[in-house]
Structure formats: C-alpha cells, structure tokens
Design a protein around this nucleic acid. Structure first.
Length: 903
RNA sequence: GCGGGGGUUGCCGAGCCAGGUUAAAGGUACCAGACUUAAGAUCUGGUUCCGUAGGGAUUCGGGGGUUCAAAUCCCCUCCCCCGCACCA
C-alpha cells in the first residue's frame, strides 16, 4: 500500500505558507544563498529544477544547522528571447504558437490565450507566476516576499545607479566591435537567430586585408595567414566573379562585389565603379613589404563571397595556391617563409599524401590545408622578415597589428562558416560603431578579483583554477544592445543594457526590495542607493516614509549581505559568475564581496541530452503530479554528485518511488509497535547514529549524494538485513528508537515526508525548522559484535556455496590466546619489527594481520557473542553452533575470523 | 589549440586526493529459489574465471615505472565530454 504523496505535500505546502516558515527576519547567524534567477519564457522542465533543488537542500540543511537562512528568488526578463517569441506569436509563426499553446495546456489554461503573448510583458508575467507555483510545489524554501524582476522600474533605477558608478570609475568605454548581423533584418543575430546555430556554432573570424598596389588602385587581398606575406608570389582573382572599385579611407580598393556588400557594414565604404576582371588579369601589382612586382593570375577556386574575393598566393605554404598554380601551368619560384625543425613543408609531397589531383578535390584540399596550418602555426618558425626565428603562434597577433599600424592592411571580418538566419537571410559580420563596453581588461581590477578568489570558498575545488583562467582571459565585454528588454543605458538611452550585464550584483536587491517598495517611487534616486549601501547619500530632503524605509533597507542590507553561497551550473563560470565577481569588487567594499560559489552539473534525460526531438524533456509540473516533489528531489540528490550531470531515467525513478513508500510505511508501522528492542538488535541504532553524524559533515560540504545514499539507501539495507535475520517485529521495535531522527536527517532532501513523519511521531512545529538531529552512540560495541556475526554468516555462505552441502551444525574454532595477545601487542608496536623477531607460525599470523586491518577491531569475547546470537543463527541458518578450542582445528583461526567446519 | 573533467566489473555509477579492510559501495539489468492459479510486486541467494570448505587466478582505456603491496602514486600514449563570450 502506497502513501498519498499528493495529500501530504499539499498539506505541508499549506502549513508552511500559513506559518510563513521561510520568511526570515534579521537576527542570529545569517546565511544568504542565491541561485541565478530563472528566465521566464517557457515552462520549466526537470533540467531547470536541478540547481534550485541543490540550493534548497543546502538552505534546508543550513537552517537545521542553526543558521538564519534567506533563500530568495526573482525573475529575469531582460534580453531578446522573450521579445523574439512575442514577435513570432504576433506574426503567427506556427511553431512558436504551437509551443506556447502547449505550455498553456500543460498548465491547464485556455490555449486560445496564446494571442496575449504577443505582448512581451505578458509572457514574463504568465511564466513567472507559473514558476513560483512550480518551485513552491517542489518544496523550495524560498522567501517569495523578496521577488522582483529585471524589468520593473525600481530595478531599472538600481541598474542605472550601478552603471553610473561603473562609468564614474572609468570601467566603461566605447569602441568598434564586430558582431554577427543580418543586413536584410537590420539586426544583430545571436545563436538562436541562426539556422542550426545551436548545433553548428558560428563565430567571427578575423581576416587581414593586405594592400597590393596597382597604380591608383589597391587590390585588397584577405588572408588568415598574414605571417606568410613575405612568401607571396602572385595574386589570385576569380575570372568568373564580379569585382568593383570602392572608396574607403580616401583610397580606391578593388574587391569582389559580394565582398563590398558585406564590407560596407564593417567600415565606411563607397561604391565607385564596376571593374572588369580582364583589366586586371596578368597585370602586375606591388606587394607592400618589399615592393616586389608580382602578377595577378586567374584562380577559379577563389570564392568571391569569402573575405574580399581577392587572394594572395603563397604556394610554398598553401596547398590551394600550390594546386591553383599547377592547374594554370604556372610555376613561380617558391619563397619559403616558415620552417619546422629547420625543414620547410613540401606542398607537393602533401598534395600527394592527401591524394589531391586538382582543385576539384575540395574536401581533401580543406583537410590538407588544416593540416598545414596546424603544423606551421604551432611548430613552425619564421625564417624571413623581422620576426625571423619566432614560432608563428607567438607572433601572429603582433604581425597583424604591425601590418595594420603601418597602413598596409586593415582587419576584415568574416563568419566562420556560411550561415543564414532562421528567416533565410545571410549572416554577415558587421562592425558596430561606438559599442559600449565594460572594460574587464583593466589590470588593477583583475588583480582585486584574483585577491578575492584567494579567500573565497569555492566548490568543487578546481573551480578556482577555472576562475583564475577566466580572469586571465577576459577582456572588454559589450554591455548594451540596440534591442531587447531591460534597462536603458543611463549615458545613452538608445541602448539597452544587455542581459548578462544587468544581472551582476542584483543579488543585493533581495536584501532591500521590500523596503524599496515602501518608498515613494519618485524619490528613489542615486542618493537613496548610496545611503543604503554606503551610508553616504544625502537623503535629508526625502519624505519620512522614504527615509524610514531607507533606514530599514540599510539595516537589512548590512545584515544579509554578502552572499554566503551562490550556486549555479558550470556553464556560468566563464560569463555570469565572473562578471558577478568583477562587479562586486568594483562597487562594494570588501566586506560585502561574495563568500562562496559552487557550481553543479546539468540534467540529461534517459542517457541523452534533453531535446524536444528525442521526446525526453519532462516538465516539472508533470513530474510533481506523477511522482511528487520528494521523489524528484531524492532522485536528483542521490543520482549524482552535485558537480556531475544527473541522468533522469524513468525506469529508475519508479524504483525510487517504491523505496520511498517502504521508508514511509516502515516508520509508520514502527510507530505503533509495542515493547523494547532486543539488546542484540541495537547495533542498528549505532549505525544510524554514525550515519546521521557523518551525513551532517557531508551536507555541509555539499556532498549531497553521499549523505543521501548513506542516510537513505544504506540505512534501508541495514534494516533489510536486520529484518531477514531477526524478523519484522523485532526490526520495527529497533527502528522506532530512531524514527524521528532518521526522518529529520533526511528533511533537507525529502521535506514533505519528513514533516509528515515528524508530526506522526508527535513532533511539534515544523520538521524543517528543527535542529539537525543526533543520536548518542552508546551501542558501538553492539555494532562490532554484529559485524563479527555478519562475517561468520558470510563465511558460512561461502562454504556452503562451494561445498554444496546442507549442514546441520557449524563448529566455530576460536583463535588461540597467543594470537589475541599478539594482536593486542601489534596495536602498540611496529608490526614490521615484530615480524622480524617472530618464528614462522607467528610471522604468518602477523602478515595476515597487516592484510586484514579490520581484524584489529575484533570483539574479544567471540564465544560470548556467538552464544548471544545462538538462537538467531539457528533460526536464520538452520544450524546448531558449537564452539571449539581444539588446537588442531584452530590453527588457521584468526581473531575475528574463526575457523568453521560444517556438517 | 587553450582551460576543465572523464575512461572502473552487462549498464549507470562510487572508490582514486590520504596505496593494503577492494573482485571492487549503491542502483539497475539478468539468473535461480520462495510466495502466487499465473503474472506483477515482494523476499532470498547468485551474476570475471576455476574450485564439493571460507581458496586461487585474472581484472579497473593501453604501455611503462615506483613499492613488500597500485583502480588508487609517477611517466608516456589512445579515446570521450564540457567551456572558450555578447548568448540567456
């Protein structure tokens, strides 16, 4: 018979709410725990539940460990996705409309309401409400009185304040910045906007456009290998493509027409005239380094849509160029620029090695090119020019910079692959002029963050390395975009602060939001925030209401902040979490800087990444209805350590359900049983005492899996063993002794069941608010005795298994006195010394002692223990136990490991 | 490439940092037995190989080394996953 988890969960949800169980007031030892706020553009699935569940288990444990815990939550609505979805719904995009209809259906709402979602704020408000509901149902001990969204006016004021501070401190700057862009749509495009952008990522590649002079014109040849410029032998242009003359920076450039269409989004470029390929072919141009005259040759392999459509040829280091020349029957003198271990790579040999017969072997050419590039990039040394002697990868960036500085090259950006938007338009690279950045590259700033990392509590331990690495690598980050929801950039209202940049110190708002809301909105300005956070804004002219609220807010901020633990999943390390550290360090004094960060794994489902097409995405709501929150939490907690991915397998989930039922009915039944437990069953109390104590440490170190497996699965196995040995009745009497403590120890993981059991056992108040339990371990000896009996049973089984007999009697040969004496001695002395002095017999024994360390834990009075369990052994194994001390028989006996004879 | 994490017994997954209690937790799957009209559920035992006495042999991606002793420490090598930015 199962238990009605739905009824139990509903009951305790109601009582927690009525009792305001998780709405802490200031006072005592505080613990502020945050998990990044969810982005509310759709229904939550099991993957979303993970980090919040871990956060909740931690907060619940901390609460029981005596901390005043605040676990707050808000909602993120900044950025483009919500906007994009509402736009699609407005336009009636069938896939999106269906998706949102299905969400509405899932939550039992009228699917026709989908049209409301054409207003972005409706998406945000609808789903934030559902998330509150879902999270509450999962038993998360969140203080919802402190919720807010990244889109509301009070928050906009706060972010405005933050950015003005960043600006004052000189951490914000402007500059040109390349981004992926759709010319047709007039928008930057993100991963989500690109066709197959999530599976096949598109990035920005920087080419170098090198100037080759042809009279008044400059052929702009683009390359990703400017280090080979010294080896140029000719220019390739595609004889079948269209080229044109354009004007940039007061000069005339020749590029393909396709290139111009993109280039004009990267810099000021004006069309001058079409040009004919024939006018250029076989003319010569001057290369910019040494003014050598080189010819322009036809290269059909040159793609006018990539780069500038003009290619400079370095046949000594490019397989394309080598084969290209071969095909048109040209064989200029190759100029070697790079050597590996003193040897240049031989393009002809590589051509043969890859089996390339001509330009038609595109794939092989691509492979060969990759091979050549990699070899020369990582292992090649330059042998000409001013960088002669350097390894390519060490000086490549410098080379590009120096070419640009000398005015003979410009950067040209290209996408890493050909890509189009979901609407079917080409994706190009555009350069945004005067893009706003937060300049994370400032060395003093980085240094402060490194200092912070030194003192932080980071889990898992390797997290520190990852952060140090990220801090090393981080540079300017664009912090605003021209579209999306969010806060307008205070210094330039055309821009909206980008969604990761507006969520770096928001955790502080949790501490003050209820008091901000008490203020008169119009009065909230920078002075208010300065007063709350630094105690130094002039607020004397505010209304009394506002001034009182400011005082309260300051008190709460000082009490709750900093964040003691921020927990999230590992993909946040190199972005959000790092910004989080940087911004705290920039804005707040050191005592308000983050104390701890932990990162966790993701959720995969049925052994695979979740995806709609695989049908393995399960909404949180469905899970709760079908299995209950406790089961979900138990599964997440025990399936994998926090830092690893959890695999949700429906078939295993079912088994958890049975285990929880067993747990519940066991404790339920034990409650009603009469009489005291047998003395010889009390070992199980000792085990439980140890488990509870050990798990406390594990919870604290966030080894949640270990705590759960031990407290739940291993404990249930003990009980199973006891039951099969001693029967149900005796087991229940023993279990009754620790039922309450057991349930309480599991309360962080399965809070609903814990509440129910706690109250069934007559507990007053909430289990969730009880101190973490402990059991005085007064039955340690019983445990050792039981371990002895267990090992005898184990040996008995071993023998019967191989000998195939059904014994009636078991003769137990207990080890001789001298062995026990040596064992005692070995605890005090160096066993190696003892071995040297011992005779053959003693030596064998001592070596056995080293091998079996646990023998040192043996119970001394084995005969007494066997007598104590004599009747149980007869019942359980169907044998009579006879003790023997016959020296012929006990020769092989060890303390804790008696000889056995069955007959 | 850089950085991080992995490769364990049918599968999932502990153990490895602090070498011996480890043929290696736990779960799952499978086999046998009990219960049952039967199935399911539940319970019991088993699941590397050999062995009619608790033993032995081999095993933790591959190779080598340190050690009385290595899944655990060191070196080399192969393979897999994740992050690398404007995207929440």
């Amino acid at each position: 018979m199962g238990y009605d988890f739905n009824a139990i969960e509903e009951k305790w949800l109601r009582r927690w709410k009525e009792g305001k169980a998780f709405e802490p007031k200031i006072g005592g030892k505080k613990f502020l725990l945050t998990v990044p706020w969810p982005y509310c553009n759709g229904a939550l699935h099991i993957g979303h539940g993970r980090t919040y569940t871990v956060g909740d288990i931690v907060s619940r444990y901390r609460r029981m460990a005596g901390f005043n815990v605040l676990y707050p939550m808000g909602f993120h609505i900044s950025g483009t996705p919500i906007l994009a979805f509402s736009k699609k719904i407005e336009h009636g995009d069938p896939a999106t409309v269906n998706l949102y209809r299905s969400y509405l259906e899932l939550y039992g709402d009228d699917p026709s309401r989908v049209s409301e979602f054409s207003v972005p704020s409706n998406i945000a408000s609808y789903f934030s409400e559902k998330i509150i509901n879902d999270f509450t149902n999962m038993g998360f001990s969140i203080d919802w009185t402190r919720k807010f969204t990244s889109g509301e006016p009070i928050y906009n004021k706060f972010i405005g304040w933050q950015f003005r501070i960043l600006q004052e401190k000189g951490l914000i700057k402007r500059g040109d910045y390349p981004i992926l862009y759709s010319a047709e749509e007039g928008n930057p495009v993100g991963e989500d906007d690109i066709l197959e952008g999530d599976t096949d990522k598109v990035s920005i590649t920087q080419f170098t456009g090198v100037f080759f002079y042809a009279g008044d014109d400059i052929l702009l040849a683009s390359t990703v290998r400017p280090e080979t410029l010294d080896g140029v032998t000719n220019i390739f242009i595609n004889p079948d493509a269209e080229y044109c003359r354009i004007r940039m920076d007061g000069k005339n450039f020749i590029v393909s027409k396709r290139a111009f269409e993109k280039l004009k989004y990267q810099r000021d470029a004006e069309f001058v005239s079409d040009v004919s390929v024939k006018d250029f072919l076989h003319r010569s141009v001057k290369e910019p380094l040494n003014s050598r005259e080189i010819p322009i040759l036809p290269g059909k392999f040159v793609d006018p849509a990539i780069g500038t459509g003009v290619d400079y040829s370095v046949p000594a280091h490019s397989i394309w160029d080598h084969v290209g020349l071969m095909e048109i029957g040209e064989r200029p003198e190759y100029i070697r620029v790079i050597e590996i271990d003193g040897q240049p790579m031989d393009m002809e040999a590589i051509r043969k090695k890859f089996g390339i017969s001509g330009l038609g072997d595109r794939e092989k050419l691509v492979d060969a090119t990759k091979y050549v590039y990699e070899q020369e990039y990582y292992h090649g040394r330059l042998v000409r020019g001013k960088y002669s002697g350097s390894v390519v990868k060490d000086v490549k960036d410098e080379i590009v910079e120096s070419l640009v500085r000398s005015g003979i090259a410009i950067p040209v950006y290209e996408t890493s692959r050909k890509a189009e938007t979901r609407e079917g338009n080409p994706v190009i690279v555009a350069v945004i002029k005067n893009q706003w950045f937060i300049d994370y590259s400032i060395e003093e700033w980085k240094e402060k963050v490194r200092g912070l990392l030194e003192r932080m509590d980071l889990r898992p331990e390797n997290l520190k390395n990852q952060f140090v690495q990220t801090v090393e690598w981080i540079k300017e980050r664009p912090c605003a975009r021209k579209r999306g929801l969010g806060t307008r950039l205070p210094m330039d209202e055309d821009w909206v602060i980008e969604s990761l940049s507006d969520s770096t110190i928001y955790t502080v708002v949790y501490t003050i939001i209820p008091f901000l809301r008490k203020m008169i909105f119009e009065e909230i300005d920078d002075d208010v925030f300065n007063q709350i956070f630094f105690g130094k804004g002039d607020v004397s002219r505010k209304s009394e209401t506002t001034r009182n609220a400011i005082e309260e807010a300051r008190r709460e901020f000082l009490f709750w902040y900093p964040v003691d633990l921020r927990h999230t999943s590992y993909p946040h390390i190199s972005n959000h979490l790092t910004f989080y550290l940087f911004n705290h360090v920039a804005i707040f004094p050191p005592e308000e800087w983050p104390v701890g960060i932990s990162t966790g794994g993701m959720v995969i489902s049925e052994g695979q990444k979740m995806s709609k097409s695989k049908g393995n995405v399960y909404p949180l709501l469905t899970i709760k209805r079908k299995y209950g929150a406790d089961l979900f939490r138990m599964y997440l907690a025990s399936n994998a350590d926090v830092w690893y991915d959890v695999d949700w397998r429906t078939s295993e989930v079912e088994n958890y359900s049975k285990k929880l039922e067993k747990f519940f009915s066991l404790l339920d039944e034990a409650r009603g049983v009469q009489g005291m437990p047998e003395d010889r069953d009390l070992w199980i109390v000792s085990r439980m005492a140890e488990r509870i104590e050990k798990s406390s440490r594990n919870y604290e170190m966030m080894k949640i899996r270990e705590a759960t497996v031990d407290l739940f699965f291993n404990a249930l196995n003990d009980i199973r063993d006891l039951e099969s040995f001693a029967g149900r009745e005796r087991t229940l009497r023993a279990v009754k002794m620790f039922g309450v403590q057991w349930a309480l120890s599991l309360s962080p993981v399965i809070p609903f069941l814990a509440e129910e059991i706690f109250s069934m056992y007559g507990g007053k108040g909430f289990a969730s608010l009880q101190p973490y339990p402990s059991i005085e371990n007064i039955y340690k000896e019983h445990e050792k005795e039981w371990e002895f009996i267990e090992s005898v049973i184990d040996d008995f089984r071993g023998i019967t298994k191989v000998s195939n007999i059904k014994p009636k009697r078991m003769t137990v040969g207990i080890a001789e006195e001298w062995k026990w004496n040596l064992l005692e001695e070995s605890k005090r002395k160096d066993i190696r010394e003892m071995i040297k002095e011992a005779d053959q017999e003693k030596r064998d024994f001592l070596i056995a002692l080293i091998k079996k360390k646990d023998l040192k834990q043996s119970v001394r009075d084995e005969e007494g223990v066997l007598n104590k369990y004599r009747d149980d052994l007869k019942n359980y194994l169907g044998i009579e136990v006879v003790i023997s001390r016959d020296p012929n028989f006990t020769r092989k006996s060890l303390p804790g490991r008696p000889s056995l004879r069955l007959d």
